[in-house]
Amino acid sequence: MSLSHDDVEKIAHLARIKIDDAELETLRTELNNIIGWVEQLSKVDTDGIEPMTSVVGTNLGHRNDSVSEVNLSDKILANAPDRVGDFYAVPKVVE
């Protein structure tokens, strides 16, 4: 599997990362090298093996349904690059 110019552009867009045209070709080569290298995994026989999603064997912990965090608006808004009143502001979205 080898990534085309378009593939790299598509991935960059999915990841919302702007890549300059000049950089894109170098990146394409690097990504293809890495992908080619990780593809050696295809040599491993994994028939009948369950994928391992976590090394932790225990059950999922949980919390009770009681409000433990009250009015953190100042905390969560403190680092906002653009803020209007108690809102975060972003460039206008057209649906």
């Binding site: 653009d82 975060y88 502001a89 206008k92 057209v94």
Partner: peptide, 10 residues
């Protein structure tokens, strides 16, 4: 989307 001409509020 309707509070500001250029920005959306979150």
């Amino acid at each position: 989307h309707d509070h500001d001409p250029k920005r959306s509020f979150i």
